[in-house]
Design a protein around this nucleic acid. Structure first.
Lengths: 250, 250
DNA sequence: AAGTGGTCTAGACCACAAA
DNA sequence: TTGTGGTCTAGACCACTTG
């Protein structure tokens, strides 16, 4: 009996959307058009299943998609309600600098400026979030695009988490890429800010002192363990971050 | 026959995770531990269903979660493979400024500095992405936190999309909040950059000229229609953006 | 107490791409 | 050609929460 239910809806049109996507689109339209305003309660899954003539699980998937997109909130017994003033949440894609530069059709190079292995001092411990005296690798380097300074990088690596880094010289390869290839990370946090370049930064980046720069700080974890902390400094005229809110499944 | 399958696994421990989450966690562990390196192919859904002693749909949900998190890629016939160098993608939460200030326990106010209704000139049309001569509302205002300047806002509103804005004076309420309460948006794009404050900006924000500022530009759509464009300028010492990569379901 | 969503099953057919 | 994931069904029990 259950056979060919799908066939009957899909064989008609070859490239049809899955049923749950059709249902999702249909419900979403009612929400974004304003027909169902914020706070409106949607019919229950059982009722929608009857309405659309499908199994409840299909409805559940459609409603789950809406919930993933924060268009609705679902609670047991309370039902599914429209979530109007939606959180301003964007997906920020922070690419590997090398990939970014190469994608722009420009040659890339990494130049190491300083390298030191030390036991974490108070500042290191605080920045990297490890105990004092933990062995760390401190790196400073320059990302070059087309031979010109693109970004200044200051990095700390937790040698307890990444002992292989102790013997790596990072000639030709940037520490970021090196880590990415070896160390799976599970969580990352970015902080974005602005600063006026001081004399040293300005010299390395070949910009005038006091020029506004965009800074990106990234902390990386593998589960509970801190892997690395990096601060990247970009001259304001050379870099912008783009974040786009996207629906999850589309 | 299908009854109480769940009961047998859940009645034992009251607060147990759902089965698919247990399976998800078990598979994820193999990936982040490195036991299954990048490129490794996972067992098929049928095989995992046998291994874990559950229905294939339960496996599908667990694998789907891994795929949502970009830990694996799933393709028909090719199977499910581990995705190691993961895209550096973060979820950036860009909050309503008022909510942000109030959450910090400080009083909030919006002060309107300029307001003009005009037909879009070339710059407007380009910025807002509408045809020339489209009626637009141009606003400039200041967000105040605890009575002190917090951010400068320059905004264009497409009056074709939001005709109600024509008669709104935005006294006491910021245009952002006003729009958020009325106009459901479906897509947003943010661009983040840095700039040196010019004389006018510095005056409004009560900072020294040339101080580095963080800028956020936001474009908002309702489906294909442009709603508004806004540029916010924050003094660098007053604002940081935080983006955190998060797994979707947790 | 009752109704809602959350999860699960044991099948099934289908679309797709790799062999 | 064949094995994989994608979707779907028609049920079921359970957890939660509101009335």
């Amino acid at each position: 009996m259950t056979m060919s239910n799908r066939a009957s809806s899909s064989s008609a049109r070859a490239n049809a959307l899955p049923r749950y996507r059709e249902i999702y689109a249909s419900l979403r339209e009612k929400i974004v058009s304003g027909e169902w305003p914020a706070g409106h309660r949607l019919p229950s899954e059982h009722e929608l299943a009857r309405t659309f003539g499908c199994a409840r699980m299909t409805i559940s998937k459609a409603l789950g998609t809406l919930a993933d997109q924060r268009l609705v909130t679902r609670r047991r017994r309370a039902g599914t309600t429209v979530n109007m003033p939606r959180p301003q949440e964007s997906v920020l894609e922070i690419h590997d600098i090398e990939a970014e530069i190469v994608a722009a059709g420009v040659s890339y190079a990494y130049e190491s400026l300083a390298r030191q292995i030390r036991r974490a001092n108070g500042s290191d411990a605080n920045t990297l979030g490890v105990a004092s005296a933990t062995p760390v690798l401190a790196l400073t380097g320059l990302h070059l695009a087309g031979g010109r300074p693109h970004a200044l990088e200051e990095r700390l690596i937790n040698l307890q988490a990444v002992p292989e880094a102790r013997s790596e010289r990072f000639h030709g390869i940037s520490p970021g890429r090196w880590l990415l290839q070896r160390i799976p990370w599970t969580e990352a946090e970015h902080q974005i800010g602005a600063l006026n370049a001081d004399a040293a930064v300005a010299r390395w980046l070949a910009i005038r002192p006091h020029t506004a720069c965009l800074t990106i700080e990234r902390n990386t974890w593998r589960d509970a363990q801190r892997i690395t902390h990096v601060r990247l400094i970009y001259p304001c005229d050379q870099h912008r971050l783009v974040a786009r809110f996207r629906y999850r499944p589309l």
